[in-house]
Design a binder for these strands. Structure first.
Length: 481
RNA sequence: GUCCCCAUCGUCUAGCGGUUAGGACACCGCCCUUUCACGGCGGUAACCGGGGUUCAAGUCCCCGUGGGGACGCCA
């Protein structure tokens, strides 16, 4: 009896809560997706709670489009959340309450320094080779009007703030490096550092996993936590992802929006796999199933150094998934691309059979969709380079020989097709190399495809015969003069 | 400029005082082969520099150098 009770209490105490808090000012990008993944993984492996929180306190820059893009991205990646999306704009009353509390307790104060005045101070500090920060002019004033003034936090003046970071170890920052940050704008709208802390407290956050560009905000937030008498969450700052020029990944490096990777033909699980391995490893393993990710991921093993995004490796991971996932699952992911490329697959072979035949030669789903068009749709003309290379003077004769034999086949399958090709080779005393390429161009219109028996079997007898007739005519005309 | 973080093949990484410095991507050969691929085999390639500590340093410490981040009434 007793052990059961204490176990239950222990479980309540260690209930892990993590979150992903994007601001809706753009797409869900690669860097955000990775921190979201890490937070999600950590919550899942601890049977904890993962919260999606939309940090939309910048009323000027928010957009519904960005909110949709973020939600779409999370959904596409399969990063499901247990709570949310929670919008900070719905919680303004709560923030105001906390700000008032800090004001009442003398832990915050009003300041009416103008933006111009502030900029002049910073300018001066920069000229003196100092770190630009608020000079505390209003910190002790009691005559600042409410109207038109901001609320600032009374940051401690002395002493060190220590971050016990799960990834980076202890980080020490002296309060002299910090200044009195603004908690609320003149119109009462709260700012980032305040809302984050209030939300993390209210939501019972146990682990804050975020990009290390936030390291500078963390000591300020720790001071706020303490001013509010709240227990600190654990912090884990993961390094940034860099572009191939060594700079922080941004739009100029090409695709950074997660949905762009969908459009480019990546499987979400492959993207996640790549992102997981970028800055983290488990022995020599490269491919991780969803379950393995959850079980094996250790936040402590995340690298401290920033890593460079490498599209070629991502493509390789994607290939691995295309090669090994069940064909039916590939088919689901392929659906979007088929529609996007206007390819109707109702009039042709089973898509799973086509996927089996082509999965080893496509790097992306987009490419896969492009490569399988000839099973479902007739082509207007033969690829010029292909006919130039493979249609010789003997071609009409060879193709006619094959055509006659194919016409006589009743049981259309890879064995019978293979037999026809071999018969023709023998009869004409030609090697496979003289027959195969021309036949391939004749039935597919292009120079590459899976092995001929498989390809021709999938194309079907009717289409094969029609295309070969057309090819014979084309080749004959080509060598007419 | 100030503060913070970081530093092993081109890239992602293993290494946690004693290793022929391992794996993966990319690249280059060879094999397989009717095309394109897959696959198999092999190869090129790294501890930023300088000082310490130690019998012993890629591993620990310090200083440089280089890179990244932050310094908003953005988040």
């Amino acid at each position: 009896m007793l052990p059961f009770v204490s176990l239950k209490i222990k479980q309540i105490n260690i209930m892990v809560v993590t979150r992903f808090p994007p601001s809706p000012t753009g797409d869900l990008h690669i860097g955000g997706a990775r921190t979201a993944l890490y937070s999600w993984l950590y919550a899942r492996q601890n049977n904890g709670k993962f919260i999606l929180r939309i940090e939309d306190t910048d009323l000027e820059r928010n957009s519904q489009k960005s909110i949709d893009a973020i939600l779409d991205g999370m959904n596409w990646l399969g990063l499901d959340y247990d709570e949310g999306p929670v919008f900070q704009t719905d919680r303004f009353d709560r923030y105001k309450e906390v700000i008032q509390q800090l004001l009442d307790e003398g832990k915050a104060y009003r300041c009416d320094c103008s933006p111009e005045e502030l900029e002049a101070v910073r300018e001066q500090q920069r000229a003196n080779k100092e770190k630009p920060k608020y000079n505390g002019k209003c910190r002790h004033r009691t005559d600042v009007p409410v109207e038109g003034s901001v609320v600032r936090f009374k940051n401690p003046l002395e002493g060190d703030v220590v971050i016990h970071d799960l990834v980076k170890g202890d980080i020490v920052i002296n309060n002299r490096e910090l200044d009195d940050l603004i908690l609320a704008r003149p119109n009462g709208v709260p700012t980032y550092n305040l809302t984050v802390v209030v939300d993390d407290i209210d939501m019972g956050m146990t682990h804050v996993i975020r990009g290390d560009d936030h390291i500078n905000n963390t000591p300020r937030q720790i001071n706020l936590f303490e001013a509010l008498g709240a227990k600190l969450p654990a912090f884990a700052h993961v390094p940034m992802i860099l572009g191939d020029d060594g700079k922080r990944l941004s739009k100029r490096h090409g695709a950074v929006g997660v949905m762009q990777y969908r459009d480019d033909g990546f499987i979400p699980q492959a993207l996640l796999n790549y992102l997981l391995r970028l800055g983290w490893s488990h022995e020599d393993q490269e491919i991780f199933s969803r379950e393995e990710m959850i079980n094996l991921f250790k936040i402590e093993n995340v690298n401290v150094a920033p890593s460079t995004f490498n599209t070629k490796k991502l493509i390789w991971v994607n290939e691995q998934y295309i090669q090994t996932l069940p064909a039916a699952e590939i088919a689901e992911h392929l659906q979007w691309h088929l529609e996007n490329q206007n390819l109707d697959i109702s009039n042709g072979p089973a898509i799973t059979d086509v996927i089996e035949a082509h999965r080893e030669r496509a790097k992306t789903l987009k490419e896969l969709a492009e490569n399988i068009r000839y099973y479902y749709q007739d082509f207007e003309e033969f690829d010029a380079n292909a006919t130039k290379k493979h249609f010789k003077t003997a071609t009409p004769g060879i193709l006619q020989n094959l055509l006659d034999k194919f016409s006589a086949v009743d049981d259309w399958n890879t064995e019978s097709i293979d037999a026809v090709i071999k018969d023709t080779c023998e009869e004409l005393e030609l090697g496979m190399g003289k027959v195969g390429p021309a036949l391939r161009v004749a039935v597919t219109g292009v120079a590459m495809s899976p092995s001929l028996d498989v390809t021709i079997n999938l194309i079907g007898k009717k289409r094969t015969l029609e295309r070969m007739e057309k090819a014979v005519a084309f080749a004959t005309a080509k060598y007419a003069d």
